[in-house]
Design a protein around this nucleic acid. Structure first.
Lengths: 344, 344
DNA sequence: GAATTATGATGAACCGGTTCATTGACTCCG
DNA sequence: CGGAGTCAATGAACCGGTTCATCATAATTC
């Protein structure tokens, strides 16, 4: 008798079938709401399940079915407060549809993105939504094209035929810069994140579009990219304000880096509003409640999460929809006291 | 020939075994780093795996092994920015150990907590860390005691023999209130969250301890509980400031509700620092950068996440450790400009 | 050199639901 | 009344790795 493995004392379909006096197939049909089960048998099976305290084993179900009812979300760093809104909404929508959310952080590194994709595949994850550190990265693109499950990109450029949900950062940045130009500013500095990724690229485009529209040439020395953390923003701001000809306005376009910029200005004794106009690339409690309140770009991250989950669900359902759909959430400029006319 | 199910064209151990000219058991041993495999066979198998692009199926592994290498984290609402720090650290530790994080939000409702626990069980999740809306809830306690996997409580009171990681909210609140009493304040209001849960209860204890120590009786009308959102804080603050005898100091102990309180004060034209002293129950960029900067209680949420994951890993490993371990992270008071001597 | 032991490899059973070809009972119709 | 058609229920095969009793071979001992 090759017994093996420890006998688990949990209740299985077989036990339920015995208790109810039916075949295991029938129990399975009851579990899956198959129509071809007489009410009487259904009730008997349900009674047996309750009696024995039966609980399906999702692993076993996934085994045969080939799908796990898991959806993975991998983002750069869930340390970004506003991003929690995205996850929160996405999780709600997915849970409603019977899916469970797997969460992972890529720390913005391609090799981790690739490793995560492999892990998701191993787990038979049914769908993925993720950010990418670099849409052009060869190995990442290859990993994406080899992924057997649908992948939806979060706030990233179009890749092949992947669905995507984005915010209109280009329009937002353009609004912000036009606003500052309209106030008479000519030396406008901008802090952006990684130009290898869509949001920063779009913001830079918006920046340039606004300048072009005004027929003015921006000073390239006032651009600081690769600002990914509050600390980076601190250093960038400090360096900008130390220039011989410092900027008169500052567009802090990188996500969640406003605090570092404000700390730097405070340290250097530059008054926000008077000494320098400031526009934040994403809204926050801090922007709203700072003194003076800070003009900011806002967009609906909850809606992005909701749409991302919904689109992914449709794709997983295998609906006949065109590939490579994109949904863009609008951005708006909330004008507050931190952006004032240039009083040169 | 009862074929069934669509032939998946993925590579399986069987294929690897054939390609390498060994038995499936040998392939499995290579996969699991079993020592009893000669170097030669191991290499042949590995070559075959690379050749065929083989990838293990974690679902199938879980099937037999009975464990999923999944760890679930269920919290009230991951909309709380600072909580992201906890999750971030916990995920890093778990990933390092080969586990994947499942995330869910309880929205602070017992029935959802119970449903989530059931779902985790169905998925054979290996370990759980979670908050609870109410440690005393009968059905939740029952669900917890029936959980077959270890559960670690996040910032909650001791339940049975469950491990827990907490912050010393009692000490933090006591420091805050003693600080305000020391400044001469006698009418100190406090906003706390749900008193059914540990953090708010502890803060209330600390509040009372500080008053008792000073030999003064607090005015019970200045306590507002069930403050769970920024909007709640707005209303509570407004109502407090409308009292015939308004408080001279405000301890905003509920998590992530400072913004609502500040909005209310601004709306009512009460100057923070002058008109009323304010202490925040948790630190944030907003507290640090507000004008005036706001005195706050701080503790290390990253450390909590790290410890939670580590303790849970030990427990899952089945180490012989005493049950019901508790780890408490210290809190500190960061004194800033928002708390000033009472100038009655 | 025969017997004993150590070591590596094998492959069928197993984990726990799901699926579908088959069976049995019952209905409908000419 | 017999044959075709319906419908519910059955249970063995299956999903894809893991495990362990068994076997083959090599190493060691006397």
């Amino acid at each position: 008798m090759p017994s093996h493995a420890p006998r688990s004392q949990t209740v299985k379909v077989k036990d339920v079938a015995r208790e109810a006096g039916v075949a295991v197939g029938t129990v399975s049909r009851v579990l899956n709401d198959h129509p071809a089960v007489t009410r009487e048998l259904r009730e008997r099976v349900e009674r047996a399940m309750a009696q024995l305290g039966y609980e399906v084993d999702v692993t076993a179900q996934s085994m045969r079915a080939g799908r796990s009812r898991l959806v993975a979300c991998a983002i750069r760093d869930f340390d970004i407060p506003r991003f929690a809104l995205f996850i929160k909404e996405a999780e709600a929508v997915l849970r409603e549809a019977g899916y469970t959310l797997l969460l992972a952080s890529t720390t913005n590194r391609p090799e981790i993105e690739i490793a995560l994709l492999r892990g998701f595949r191993r787990r038979r994850v049914d769908g993925v939504m993720m950010t990418l550190s670099d849409e052009q990265h060869r190995d990442v693109r290859e990993a994406l094209s080899e992924a057997p499950m649908p992948v939806l990109l979060i706030d990233r450029d179009r890749i092949e035929a992947l669905d995507r949900v984005t915010a209109d950062h280009r329009a937002g940045a353009r609004l912000a810069i036009s606003h500052l130009l309209g106030l008479g500013h000519r030396r406008i500095a901008m802090l952006v994140g990684d130009l290898k990724a869509f949001p920063s690229r779009s913001r830079l485009e918006g920046f340039r579009a606004a300048y072009a529209e005004a027929g003015i040439a921006p000073d390239p020395r006032l651009l600081r990219d690769d600002v990914l953390s509050s600390e980076d923003a601190y250093r960038a701001t400090a360096s900008l304000m130390s220039l011989a000809e410092p900027p008169t306005a500052l567009f802090v376009a990188a996500m969640d880096t406003l605090s570092g910029c404000l700390r730097a200005l405070r340290t250097m004794g530059v008054a926000v509003g008077d000494g320098i106009s400031v526009v934040a690339g994403s809204d926050s409690d801090l922007a709203e409640l700072y003194t003076p309140p800070i003009t900011a770009i806002a967009w609906d991250l909850s809606a992005m999460g909701r749409h991302a989950a919904t689109m992914l669900l449709e794709r997983m359902r295998g609906d006949e929809i065109e590939r490579g759909r994109g949904l863009t959430v609008p951005t708006e400029l909330i004008i507050r006291g931190s952006s004032r006319p240039f009083a040169g």
